[in-house]
Each structure stands twice: as C-alpha cells, then as structure tokens.
Nucleic acid binder design. Structure first.
Lengths: 236, 236
DNA sequence: TCAAAGCGGTTGCGGCGTATCCGCTTTTCT
DNA sequence: AGAAAAGCGGATACGCCGCAACCGCTTTGA
C-alpha cells in the first residue's frame, strides 16, 4: 500500500504530513486545504502534493488509521462480559474520538470522499458494531427492535449536538460544555432500555445495515437542479 | 419595519423575493446566493439587491415569518390539557418544519447571522419552550432534571440525523427514510420519561436558558489561528 | 405628459483552493 | 568523491464563485 521504495527524507515527510493532516482536519474539518496541512507539517506545499496526489489521497490514508482505532474500541467491547457495559463502552469511546476530531465526524456522518474507501471501512467495522448491538439485544438489556444501525444514528445525533456546542463561544462557569453531548447520549441510552410492557413501539423502522451503507456511501446524484420560475413580470 | 412607501411593483417584487427566499433557502440552505433567489423569483439580480441591501436582510425578514410559525405551534401546545401531549405536539410539529427547511434548521443550530435578530427570536420563543418543558416536568411526565434547553438539543440531535439522511441518495423500498429522525425522537422521548427509581442521574447538567442563549447568539470569536509548526526540516 | 422610481443583468472585483513548475538541495550509489 | 536521481520549497497560474455596482431602458403615478 505505502510505496515500497521511498527515500529516507521522503518517507519522513510523508509521516509528518499524515500526522499534520490528522491534527488539522481534526480541528478544522475536511475543508482545510492541503496547503494548510503542509504548513502545519513544516513542509513545502509541493512536497505535500508529491506525497499525496491530492487531498483525497491524504484523507484516505488518515481514515485507514482511524478505522484501526475504532476497530480496537470495538474489540475491547466485544471482549467484555456484560453486553450492556460493552455497548456503553463502544459508544462512549467512539464518541469521545469523533467529538474531538471534526474530520472523523464528517466521515461518519456521510461526507462522501471516496466510495471505495467507504466500502472498505464499513465492511471492516459494521459487522463488529452489529455484534455489539446484537449481544445487548439478545441479552434483553436493550429493546427488542434495536439494531446496529441505531448505534450509528445515535452517534450521529450526539455529534450534531457537539458541533453546535463547539462552534459557539466559551460559556462562563461551564467548562464541561464540550461534554454536553453525553447528557443526551444517556437520555438515548435510557430510551433504549426496555421499559414498561405497554411501551409504544418506535414509529419508524430502523434502517438495515445495507440501507445505511447505501445512504452513506453512494456517489452524489442530487442534481440540485436550479429550479427557475418562468419570468412572471412579463418582461423580455 | 417594511418601508412605508414603496411603489406597487416594488412591493410585489419584494414579496416575490421573500417567498422565493423561503423556498430556495429551505432546499439548499443559507449558503444559496441572492442571485439564485432572484432567479427563482423571476426577478433581476439588481432588484434583489435593491429590495434587500444584502443577503442577511432577506434572511432576517424570512426568519421573522418563521418565528411566527413556531410561536403558533408553541401556543397550540400550551393550549392543550395534557402536558405530555403538549410536549410531543411541540417537538413533532417543530421538527417537521425544521426538517423540511434547511435554512430554518441552520438558524436553530446556531448559524450566526445577525446577533440582534437572534436575541429577538429567542426572547420571543424561549419562554414558551420553557413553559412547555416546565409543565411536563411539574406534572411528572418527564424526569425531574429535564429543562427547556433539553428540548432544543433534542431537536438539534434530530436535525443532525435528518441532514445525513437527506444528503444521501434515495433508498429503495424505503420511502419513509426522510422520517427516520422520528425513530430517534421517540427513543429520546422514552429516555425522558421517569423510569425506575434507581435510574442513574444524567452525567452532565443541562445548560441554562442563558447559557444556551450565549452559545447560539454570540458573535464569532474563534480566531482559527493558523497554527504553524516551525520549520523542522532545518531548511531556510 | 414627464420626472421619479424601479428594473434587468452584464460586468468588475476580490478571495480562495488546487496543483504545477523550476531552481536548488539532499540522498544514494558506485 | 562525485555524479545522477530523487526530493524539496514556495511563488504563482488557473479556474471558480459570490457579492455588488452600474447604466441604459421601462413602469408608475401625479
């Protein structure tokens, strides 16, 4: 994958760019420019474009690392005895990562970059997420109609909250505002627990793993056709 | 507010622009250009800039209308006998609006446009939202530590989900995907209901109304200072 | 009827992100 | 050691886009 032959300094700069990319994209999101990444890495712009033909290539490489981290969290969860603890562990750890990394969050929430990379990520992680959910459901600690895709949307919901908080100003006497998303994570976790028998079923079915996959990785088709109303003023 | 003297055609075009603005911003978000709005209205670009000095003015005018709609929903809720039904009514109706209007959603989620307008909106709506929440809490149908600001964040969470779904492609055999957010709305509503007495308290305190206000309406201070690491390569 | 008000949309301007190019430096190989 | 190959920096060309003004023509209304 990473080219076999690479001069020593070149390899070093590549690593520097990767690290800088993580940092810059984490703070400013995937819209940050490759120029910014290069500067942050203390490297010329030309070097950046020589190591990574374009921004997407860099993002892909970074994503590969991030997937490994998520995979590790999932494996930790799956190694735990208590299915509920495992579920909580996954959500808390995964969210802690996404909340501190705007780029990672944008990737999760369906910002399309490279469909193939999306496919690869999902086939690597989705089965593990599903297993975490299935274990909890089979043990009866979450409602019978909860699925792995619910865990994803639950995270997306929390990320939405976190973004709002982070984009805003500091709040006096409230240095824990960054963690506000956890309040709602726990509301949702409580909502996932099976309750009274007369609880109404959820009003909308969950997406299947395949549907979620389609949703997050298909190429952009939206034409955004500039609808125009015909000239109403009767002028030429 | 709207200028007293305005020639007939000018007033007509102003109305057209307002309506077109709602439509265009609803579909494409507040990043749509005034040019687009003008075209959609079937009106020249010059006219647009004459009726509204800039995009912000137009957005403000639109927001004023939207606030009235939200206020109406809140009043409907407050007129209902059952505090739980009132709560659900507000959330469902308000979300239905926001989900079909990207511009409106962006305003709610803290996209700063005009601080003064934000202030005006919030002082108009926040008390009503709080009353809905307080009624439900006092009646014991939602947990004792739930507040009005929770209702806002709950909506923000749902909007985050809805955005992901809407940005993606259509999903076969699933024409109700647009409403997927409601699945999670109801998870959260269930999570809001007081449950077993041994339920752990939420891990993070809610924001106060004032704190939420600060968060969503203060001017942008973030410097986004382009952090640069000093040249590590030892080159000039 | 005619001045004032309004209109259309072309055009200029400025900012921005991508990616290249070229003179110079470092590495690597013999 | 010395030369060829590989790499480096960063100024800059290029294309794109959104905002807004300007000016010749049209509509309004007194």
């Amino acid at each position: 994958m990473t080219d076999v032959k690479l001069r020593k300094d070149a390899a070093l700069n590549r690593a520097r760019l990767l690290e800088a990319g993580r940092e810059v994209f984490a703070q400013r999101g995937l819209d940050a420019t490759l120029n910014d990444v290069a500067h942050y890495a203390g490297v010329g712009v030309g070097t950046a474009y020589r190591r990574f033909a374009n921004k997407e290539d860099l993002i892909d490489a970074i994503r590969c690392q991030q997937d490994s981290e998520l995979e590790a969290i999932l494996n930790e969860s799956l190694a735990m005895d208590d299915p509920w603890d495992a579920l909580v562990h996954y959500l808390e750890k995964s969210l802690a990562l996404h909340v501190r990394d705007r780029g990672m969050a944008e990737l999760l929430t369906g910002r399309r970059v490279r469909p193939e990379m999306h496919d690869q990520s999902r086939s690597r992680l989705a089965p593990l997420v599903n297993r975490v959910a299935d274990r909890a459901r089979d043990a009866g600690v979450i409602r019978a109609d909860a699925t792995g895709t619910d865990l994803i949307f639950l995270q997306i919901a929390c990320i939405g909250i976190s973004n709002v908080v982070q984009d805003g100003p500091e709040i006096e006497e409230r240095n824990d505002a960054r963690d506000l998303y956890r309040r709602y994570l726990w509301v949702m976790l409580d909502g996932l627990i099976p309750q009274r028998d007369d609880t109404a079923p959820l009003p909308v079915k969950a997406l299947t793993t395949m549907q979620l996959h389609t949703l997050l990785s298909d190429p952009i088709t939206a034409d955004n056709s500039h609808a125009t109303r015909s000239n109403v003023n009767g002028r030429p």
